[in-house]
Design a protein around this nucleic acid. Structure first.
Lengths: 258, 258
DNA sequence: TGAATAGTGTCTATAAGACAATATCCC
DNA sequence: GGGATATTGTCTTATAGACACTATTCA
């Protein structure tokens, strides 16, 4: 195969043999799938996990709730596309955002082949509540995780009164994978901070861990572990307006510029 | 926007507003990126990690070494595409194969926009050596990891004499991510078995762990931890042909059908 | 003062690291 | 028997869980 042929084909990434070329050609190489990003924006308060959903106005899944998403532009990276979606659809910038998994079942979108690169983002509850939830098609879904630990699998969405929300596409599997990922991450990284404001008490942090993991954690050993980790920085200030002894406020020692 | 418009567009995944529609349209929605899968096939022996590479016959990166890869067919899932690549390019079936990360930098392929969904696969050294390495364009690359623990970052490829191998595209970053992933997995899953034959000694398993992690592990506690995990099953047989007391052979208790 | 949670100190159980002692194979 | 590694047992140290006790704030 000549370089010219490779250029005409235009998309040949692994032209290591004639067979590979022919195979790619036979597979209808001129037809390409669509590529999108979907973002599971997670937050936590009152011992519940939440995610931002948007009501679909059109078929398929009209009236169902979907994660914010959009097409990947030809000139932007995947990370940039995800950040753009988060900015345009949730008005959020500078939050924790990480690639999660790519979903590519040929039937996942009934119209045409759409491969989606799923991301997940974490924000504290104040910023999450500040998202334009006023708009009629925006919604806050309570995440109901029907499995323990890191088993994995789809989750269910409910409104804040407990009513089931119908989910579009495979988005409940995406959020399920996000929950599984963040549960795993809690074991060895300080990702829980991303769900809290800049300053927080040890109890706040413990509640976040319990919410994500779905079960209580030992208070004593949690405090010891967190303080020994070196990731926390005491501010010297204390919380106010509580009907009991106020706890000291801490800050994440290497919080990335937000 | 009407359903008809959505169908004409054909790829509209999140038609929640007129703005979203226009934005997708303006972004040149009829132009789609190419989507490929690349597979980092890893194995380990003699305290070194190896990966299968294929020499590129054409530009770009002519003469450099690339991971086996191929286009995702319009009718196959991502997992199926990765399994097909592994079968066609390495002659392997039924091995551990898992999605790793999706690389989508707009400049990663100099010809056109190619988004690749990277996978990694694990095989024992005997099966790896059985791969058609005889063909002139197949190669075995020694993986040199220039970072500790789970820092992450690209790795370097060398031939078995220590000479540097030039890497195509971002494939050294893909393998770097695979090494990072498997190092993390060793902490909480029995993925090390995938790099060993059906039966193995505790020392074999320890050497695999040391090879992946890049540093020695404590023998006593390693043995205790593995035996206590319940993942190992003693076969009652012992290894032969060694110039010392032969160790007992174990088997992974829930080894998936291979 | 009482309610409520923060924070400290101590004891116990479990897992990891260190190391010595014994076992078993091939030569 | 000698060389080499397997396997067991014991001691020490670090960490987690349990729990009692003291501290501090507001109502």
């Amino acid at each position: 195969m000549s370089d010219v042929a490779a250029n005409v084909l235009g998309t040949q990434v692994d032209a290591d043999s004639e067979e590979a070329f022919l195979q790619a050609y036979d597979a209808g190489e001129f037809e390409h799938p669509s590529v999108t990003v979907d973002v599971a924006l997670l937050s936590a308060w009152e011992h519940q996990l939440f995610t931002l959903v948007i009501r679909r106005a059109e078929h398929p899944f009209r009236g169902c709730w979907a994660l914010p998403g959009g097409f990947v532009g030809m000139q932007e990276s995947l990370d940039e596309a995800a950040a753009r979606v988060l900015r345009d659809k949730a008005g959020l910038e500078g939050v924790f955002l990480e690639q999660l998994y790519t979903f590519g079942d040929p039937q996942r979108d009934p119209r045409t082949r759409v491969i989606t690169v799923a991301y997940y983002a974490l924000v504290d509850s104040a910023r999450f509540r500040g998202v334009n939830v006023d708009e009629a098609d925006r919604g806050v879904a309570v995440i109901d995780v029907p499995w323990e630990a890191e088993t994995g699998g789809p989750v269910e969405f409910a409104d804040e009164q407990g009513g089931t929300l119908l989910t579009a596409f495979d988005h409940s599997a995406i959020v399920g994978m996000a929950v599984k990922r963040i549960r795993g991450k809690l074991n060895y990284t300080p990702v829980g901070f991303q769900l809290l404001p800049l300053e927080f008490t040890l109890r706040d942090l413990q509640v976040v861990h319990e919410t994500v993991r779905g079960h209580p954690v030992n208070k004593d050993s949690f405090r010891r572990r967190m303080l020994a980790s070196g990731e926390l920085e005491a501010t010297g200030r204390r919380q106010g307006d509580v009907g009991h002894r106020p706890a000291e406020l801490y800050r994440f020692a290497r919080r990335s510029a937000v």
